[in-house]
């Protein structure tokens, strides 16, 4: 033993030890100045706390089982119609920044001015409110400022949520996580598998790409608009998988008479009925969805 102590002795750092013997008295803060019945933290109080904790935990577990955590569709950066919505505790700020005088030309006031002052004041509250008085009803300024901010935040949050519901209704949009759950339920009721949005769609390509109908498509300049592989370009839709959407008769109708005021031109005069029939037959076989 380096210190030459009796081996049963508690460690006492003296002699050659580099750690000083601590004389720090281990006396808990004295609560005798507080009136009434105080209680030992361990074990009395802690046991009660744990019992309450267990009840809360069980309640929480039941909640997570009854109410699955929401999940929408995979992020699609090209989706222009999605209505952005932060989590609820940011709504007050989100809504606040929509008001004139704190947005656009005045955005400086919106991001830096008001919130920075508010949060700065909150951060430094003990140095702004230095009085000795602790009771809130004897601190009218501090209490009413906090009360007002609270009411304002709640108001902004509610307005923001209302506004969101309103847009959803106006656009007839169902939030994605709800729609997704709805579809999953429907599938389950029909005994089908849950729709899966995670598998990347197999790069679909033309069915029977060597069919003579493809030559007609090339000659008739379908490829000019629908692209060489008929997968579409710009606003012109892909014809791969068109058989899922349209029947043979509908296809023949589109080709014969065109659609959308000639955006899709009529081929009544350019192709024979037989060629149109051949094209429509072939296009109707262009299915992607798994059978």
């Amino acid at each position: 033993m380096a210190h030459g102590h009796h081996s049963n002795e508690k460690v006492v750092y003296v002699g050659d030890s580099r750690v000083k013997k601590s004389n720090h008295p281990n006396i808990p803060p004295d609560y005798t100045s507080f009136p009434g019945k105080s209680e030992a933290f361990i074990p009395n109080f802690l046991l009660k706390e744990w019992m309450v904790g267990c009840v809360v935990l069980v309640g929480f577990l039941v909640w997570t089982i009854a109410e699955p955590a929401p999940l929408g569709y995979p992020a699609d950066p090209t989706n222009a119609s999605f209505i952005p919505m932060p989590d609820w505790y940011f709504l007050f700020l989100y809504q606040f920044l929509k008001y004139p005088y704190v947005s656009q030309d005045y955005i400086l006031l919106g991001t830096m001015g008001v919130p920075a002052v508010m949060f700065g004041a909150l951060l430094l509250a003990p140095f702004l409110d230095t009085g000795k008085e602790r009771r809130f009803y004897r601190r009218p300024i501090a209490s009413s400022l906090m009360g007002l901010s609270l009411i304002a935040s709640i108001y902004l949050t509610v307005i923001s949520w209302d506004h969101y519901q309103h847009i959803l209704e106006a656009n007839g949009t169902i939030p994605e996580h709800i729609e997704r759950e709805e579809k999953a339920r429907e599938a389950a009721e029909k005994g089908e598998e849950r729709p899966n949005y995670t598998q990347p769609k197999e790069e679909a390509s033309l069915v029977e790409a060597n069919d003579p109908a493809m030559d007609i498509a090339k000659q008739a300049q379908c490829v000019g608009c629908h692209a060489a592989d008929l997968k579409g370009q710009g606003t012109t839709p892909s014809l791969v998988g068109v058989g899922d959407r349209l029947s043979k008769e509908e296809l023949a109708e589109v080709i014969t008479n065109g659609r959308n005021n000639g955006a899709m031109p009529s081929f009544k005069d350019k192709l024979s009925a037989e060629e149109i029939d051949q094209l429509a037959t072939w296009l109707s076989k262009q299915k992607v969805a798994a059978e």
Binding site: P70, L71, A75, P77, N79, F82, M85, P86, Y94, H177
Partner: peptide
């Protein structure tokens, strides 16, 4: 933690909330 965690599921809600959030932060002078 709330802001960064919101993006992680990588659904549309996550994506667009983060986009807007960072855009707001970007407007700070």
């Amino acid at each position: 933690l709330g802001f960064t965690g919101y993006l992680l599921p990588w659904d549309n809600k996550a994506y667009y909330a983060t986009k807007v959030g960072v855009e707001i932060a970007a407007s700070v002078p």
